[in-house]
Simulated scan of single mutants.
Amino acid sequence: MTKPSSPDTAHNDGPREKLLLAALELFGQYGFDGVSTRRLAEQADVNLQAINYYFGNKRGLYNAVADYLICRLQARIGERRKLVLGRFAEAQSGGQPIDADEARAILTVLGETMLTLFADDESAVWVRYMVREQAEPTEAYDRMYTGFMQPMLVAVRHLVGILLESDPNCERVRLRTLSLVGSLIVYRVGRATILREMEWSAVGPAEVAAIRGIAAELVASIHPIRESAT
């Protein structure tokens, strides 16, 4: 497996990092088959042989982009995830259990963090690559799923399970978790529709604040179904 780039070095001017950034943009726009190695090298302004030197071949570069994305996502929201997982570990080792109020508060913070990330222009390039992998998964998708998506979904699923008073591994909790995450992702994937519908020319600080406010509303809608009295 190609070693992921460190978030601290992912934006330097080295040939490897230049190739990763160029590949992320081009693969996201045109897909794996739609980009030649020559075009990748020209976009990155590096020697053609650099692809083989750093990544082995074009497929190696494509997969390395997935590792790079994991690093960038972890740099942006990894700290929040680490706090959540640490809180879970504390509760499971005999510490104070996570009640519904705390679960709702944690989910809201995670939702706000994700919405803020999706509002960032940097994430637009990431999403094009990720959406292609959703449509036609490859080894790169497996890397992104196991390296970032799955641990995040597990954390969110446990919080949703607390709010629904249900087993976090049951079908209903899994589906509600996916619905919540999907409701957040639409603010990046559906950017053109959102701008048109909201009559916004761009997403600036005021728009980001409005979008962030949706997180609490989405989390507030998660509650257990009570049997009606007969």
Rank of each mutant, 00 (worst) to 15 (best):
M1T: 14
D8H: 08
A10C: 05
N12P: 01
N12E: 06
D13N: 12
D13M: 15
P15L: 01
A22I: 05
L26Q: 03
G28P: 06
G28I: 11
Q29L: 14
S36G: 12
A44E: 04
D45G: 13
D45E: 15
L48H: 13
Q49T: 14
N52Y: 10
R59Q: 10
L61Q: 07
A64N: 00
A64V: 06
Y68L: 04
I70N: 14
L73Y: 01
I77T: 02
R81K: 09
K82F: 09
Q92E: 15
Q92S: 15
G95D: 08
I98L: 11
D99Y: 02
R104V: 00
R104I: 02
E112V: 04
T113L: 03
F118C: 02
D120I: 12
A124L: 07
A124T: 08
W126F: 07
W126K: 03
M130P: 00
V131H: 00
V131D: 04
E136Y: 08
P137H: 02
T138A: 00
T138L: 04
E139Q: 09
M144Y: 02
Q150T: 13
L153I: 05
L153T: 12
R157C: 08
R157V: 04
L164I: 09
E165P: 04
D167L: 11
D167R: 03
R176V: 13
V181T: 00
S183N: 06
Y187S: 11
V189S: 08
G190M: 08
R191Q: 15
R191V: 14
M198T: 14
E199D: 15
S201K: 14
A202K: 15
P205C: 15
A206P: 03
A209N: 13
R212A: 14
I214C: 03
L218E: 01
V219W: 00
A220F: 03
H223S: 09
P224S: 03
R226M: 11
R226A: 10
